[in-house]
């Protein structure tokens, strides 16, 4: 009995150590990057593990916030995040609601056709050609429209709508509410936590968007934040290596300040919105 008790205690001890280590491994890269961005160049060029800045300076931030390109890319990303998320939510909610009614004729077929696109796709090139032909090249709309609905989010939203008791909707209909009225006056107010979750899923994806931009945006004035960051991190190295004109190398402080400029909004808001993401994971788990 005693040995079992101590064995269990020993396990608890190890468990806490392992999990704490995982936490440190997750957070340290962010911390190290922050420290480098706040340190003068000379400190960063000497090899060391950075726990705290030895000399504190905001010079790197002064430099990047003085760049016009940073502000235009913030503008593009904020537009895509706000407008893109609103449109995506509208499309997703409007489709998820009728699809949540399995009694409505045709919805099963339509749902199957939507989900099928997760299993089979025409591929990168045919999609690229469609975007090109629909006139979205070098337009911020290319960062929104071609991925306006995430099928996974649509499934989550539909699953949630299915949990709302139909009797509530029926009584509203008897009071003379139309289908649209029921959705906006009865169903949506009951779904606020789920709406928040899915809104955040879209918003984070739009904020992090770089993929469509690589394909569809060649005009540097329309680069979103993530492409600006990519340019700061990798592009000048490539230009330097290939012996291009730009032989000016950005120091680690400036590069890491750009990383922080792109990551900070997410990092600062994360503690407030993370519980909604757990809710999203739960919705997904319940579905299965």
């Amino acid at each position: 009995m005693h040995s079992r008790f101590y064995g269990s205690r020993l396990f608890d001890g190890f468990n806490v150590i392992i999990l704490t280590l995982l936490g440190v491994i997750t957070l340290y890269p962010f911390w190290d990057t922050l420290v480098v961005s706040l340190s003068p160049l000379d400190d960063n060029l000497s090899s060391a593990v950075h726990l705290f800045p030895r000399h504190f300076t905001l010079a790197a931030y002064d430099y990047i916030f003085g760049m016009k390109e940073l502000w235009t890319s913030y503008g593009v990303t904020i537009f895509v995040t706000v407008v893109g998320t609103l449109i995506s939510m509208l499309f997703t909610v409007l489709a998820a609601y009728p699809l949540s009614k399995s009694s409505l004729k045709g919805t099963r077929v339509i749902m199957f056709l939507f989900v099928f696109t997760m299993m089979f796709s025409g591929g990168i090139i045919p999609t690229y050609l469609v975007v090109k032909n629909t006139g979205l090249m070098n337009s911020v709309w290319a960062l929104i429209i071609p991925t306006v609905i995430f099928t996974y989010n649509l499934i989550l939203m539909r699953t949630f709508f299915q949990t709302i008791p139909e009797s509530l909707e029926d009584s509203a209909k008897i009071d003379g509410c139309s289908d649209v009225g029921v959705l906006f006056r009865i169903v949506l107010p009951l779904s606020l936590p789920s709406l928040a979750t899915i809104t955040l899923f879209y918003a984070v994806a739009r904020w992090n968007e770089y993929f469509n931009a690589i394909f569809y945006i060649t005009d540097h004035d329309l680069w979103p934040l993530q492409l600006f960051l990519r340019g700061m991190l990798f592009q000048n190295e490539a230009a330097y290596m290939s012996g291009g004109e730009s032989t000016f190398l950005l120091g680690p402080s400036v590069k890491m300040a750009s990383v922080m400029a792109a990551a900070l909004p997410i990092l600062l808001l994360y503690p407030f919105f993370q519980k909604y993401f757990v809710k999203g994971a739960m919705l997904g788990a319940v579905k299965e």
Binding site: N208, E209, Y210, Q226, R230, L233, M256, A262, A263, Y270
Partner: peptide
Amino acid sequence: FISWVILGG
């Protein structure tokens, strides 16, 4: 929740 570009950084 961070992008691959930030992780690259």
